[in-house]
């Protein structure tokens, strides 16, 4: 079987398109690269959707945590503490358990026990908590001059937040937020490994990598392939976030921009 044929058969196997049965003997390098690559679809899906949706919740949480009102601040603080203070392993376990018991009560929760929704929700809450902490730190370090200038223009409420506070917060938080994005993509590898069951052998990159490691009894081929894919993914994330960073800082003079990047703001 040629490699092109393999790519046709297994390129989209992880989402159920192509050959129904996985290869079972005479594993070629091409099959391993194709199937593990196909599994990356899930890693990218989990990472991108959780990151984008988590971004909004994180902003809200950060503002709530910085709020002087106790009724807003306390819940946000607890949410962030619980999700940042416990391993993802345990969060997946409780997430799955919770969705199972909800499902037995109300049929509308049917989809929640499958990874595409259930694991996504756990990852979404997890990344929201981590990002919120980063955004909160950035909120506190917004230069006083910026907010004073906004006040001087008579800006209040929503326009003041949207046009002054929020852009500055993002600018300050961006390097650390890039790190969080990298960690989140790495965390997606845990979904099928410990948290949620894999249906019909549709799994993520790590699922296929361990499938091959198990069949060929040789961990030194599939896992480095997996590592290679993730390095590529990380480079993409760094590239995209770098472009956004450049856009966020486009109003600054060249010299100051360079300095921005050097800020040791590596908080996760």
């Amino acid at each position: 079987m040629s490699c092109l044929q393999t790519i046709q058969d297994y390129g989209l196997r992880s989402i159920g398109i192509g050959e129904r049965l996985l290869p079972r003997s005479d594993f070629t390098l091409c099959e391993q690269v194709t199937l593990i690559g196909s599994g990356m679809i899930w890693n990218v899906y989990f990472g991108v959707v959780a990151l984008i949706s988590g971004f909004f919740l994180a902003t809200a949480l950060a503002v709530a945590k910085a709020s002087p009102r106790k009724g807003l601040r306390k819940p946000a603080e607890w949410f962030i503490f619980i999700f940042r203070g416990s391993p993802l392993f345990i969060q997946f376990f409780f997430g799955y358990f919770l969705f199972l018991s909800l499902k037995s009560q109300y049929p509308m929760f049917d989809a929640f026990t499958s990874a595409w929704l259930g694991a996504l929700i756990v990852l979404y809450l997890n990344t929201a908590a981590y990002s919120a902490e980063i955004f909160y730190g950035a909120l506190l370090s917004i230069p006083k001059g910026d907010t004073e200038a906004a006040d001087a223009y008579g800006m209040t409420g929503w326009p003041r937040f949207k046009r002054v506070i929020w852009p500055t917060m993002l600018r300050l938080a961006w390097p650390a937020y890039t790190n969080e994005a990298i960690f989140l993509f790495h965390a997606t590898a845990l979904v099928f490994f410990s948290g949620f069951p894999a249906w019909q052998q549709k799994g993520d990159a790590l699922y296929y990598a361990s499938y091959f490691a198990d069949k060929t009894f040789n961990p030194f081929v599939p896992y480095p392939i997996l590592a290679g894919y993730f390095i590529l993914l990380t480079l993409c994330v760094v590239g995209v976030f770098g472009a956004v960073n450049a856009r966020l800082n486009r109003h600054l003079p060249q010299e100051a921009r360079r300095k921005m990047r050097l800020r040791p703001n590596l908080i996760r």
Partner: peptide, 9 residues
């Protein structure tokens, strides 16, 4: 760039 879990395996 590599998830720690893949590295450990």
């Amino acid at each position: 760039g590599v998830p720690d879990i893949a590295f450990f395996l």
